[in-house]
């Protein structure tokens, strides 16, 4: 069974009388442990696709199976639960809570899954150790550099042992050197923890870290290539 299977999914937005087809009949399948880059220009539908895969949005038509679960049939709270347990998000703008410590930010997903306070603390510090931020648990997010903030976000994404990480332009706000460090962290998580990483980017340099590149144009998949690594 594939980790992610989409059949003929479409997304149509209606702006007044005009129907905008953000996605048209996309079918794909992704296996556990893959490292995938989704590429395309803005307006190509890649972000819409990500939102649907990330259970933040539902397709207008078509079927999306996540670990065999038909996500389209779930209600708002069931989707929230899927996001909580199966999916970790890493965003371009980090999206950490302000004036909150790194540790508390990483604890957040566990607050919503009912992990006892003592375990939360321990697991959050372990996750921070994994992303290389040991000793910075009590720093507030605004005291951290961009790269460090993105590491906190990655720690938050992995702390609930979610099998999938969705990273939406994770290096968009970072300089080249830091971008490479962050990408290497994703590679490490993918290799060592077998976490499936799905990356949205428009930079070929960043996409080069992945093992499979899917390109979008005008709401359709135009290419899907596995990259042979040396």
């Amino acid at each position: 069974m594939a980790l992610i299977e989409v059949h003929e999914i479409s997304k149509v937005y209606s702006l007044g009388d005009i129907a905008v087809h953000a996605l048209s009949s996309v079918s794909l399948s992704m296996e556990k442990g893959e490292f995938i880059a989704i590429m395309g220009q803005s307006g190509s539908g890649k972000s819409t696709f990500m939102n649907i895969l990330g259970c933040l949005d539902k397709p207008s038509s078509g079927q999306y199976l996540l670990e065999g679960i038909d996500v389209g049939r779930l209600d708002r709270d069931e989707l929230a639960d899927i996001r909580n347990r199966k999916i970790g998000f890493v965003f371009q703008g980090f999206n950490l809570l302000r004036r909150t410590s790194a540790l508390e930010n990483v604890e957040l997903p566990m607050l919503y899954s009912g992990v006892p306070a003592k375990d939360r603390r321990q697991r959050a510090s372990e996750a921070l150790k994994v992303v290389g931020l040991a000793g910075r648990e009590n720093h507030y997010t605004n005291q951290l550099s961009g790269g460090q903030q993105q590491r906190v976000a990655i720690a938050r994404a992995i702390v609930n042992e979610a099998p999938i990480i969705f990273a939406d332009e994770p290096t968009g706000n970072l300089d080249t050197k830091t971008s490479v460090e962050i990408m290497e962290l994703f590679v490490k998580l993918n290799a060592e923890s077998k976490i499936t990483v799905i990356l949205v980017t428009h930079e070929p340099d960043i996409a080069a870290f992945s093992k499979r590149v899917i390109k979008f144009l005008d709401g359709r998949v135009i290419s899907d290539e596995r990259v042979a690594k040396a």
């Binding site: 990330g54 933040l56 708002r76 709270d77 929230a80 999206n95 997903p109 919503y112 899954s113």
Partner: peptide, 16 residues
């Protein structure tokens, strides 16, 4: 709003 969005993205339910 953004904070609420973050919380929802990482799994906060309606009643949370």
């Amino acid at each position: 709003t953004r904070e609420i969005g973050i919380r929802m993205a990482i799994g906060a339910k309606t009643w949370d």
